[in-house]
């Protein structure tokens, strides 16, 4: 019996997908399809994009702080 599930298809890099799965680890709303595809609820798209953006920005900030610290040591 064929099943149809309403949702939003997300296509992304495996590295981005790993972050998305980590964000989802508490709610388990995601259907994992393959290394670069997954399905999320339509209502979760905006929230996911926002959290993903935050995570990616966090990484950038951490990198720049480390560089500054190294400069101070010199």
């Amino acid at each position: 019996m064929v099943r149809a599930i309403k949702g939003t298809l997300v296509e992304c890099d495996p590295s981005i997908k790993a972050i998305i799965l980590d964000i989802d680890s508490k709610t388990h709303d995601i259907i994992n399809l393959d290394e670069s595809h997954l399905i999320i609820k339509d209502s979760k798209v905006a929230e996911l994009k926002r959290i993903l953006e935050e995570r990616l920005n966090e990484h950038t900030k951490v990198d720049s702080l480390e560089e500054e610290e190294e400069e101070e040591d010199d």
């Binding site: 149809a4 599930i5 949702g7 939003t8 998305i20 399809l33 399905i39 798209v45």
Partner: peptide, 9 residues
């Protein structure tokens, strides 16, 4: 980074 398409699986 992320392409989203609403629809049905």
């Amino acid at each position: 980074r992320m392409k989203t398409t609403p629809g049905y699986l």
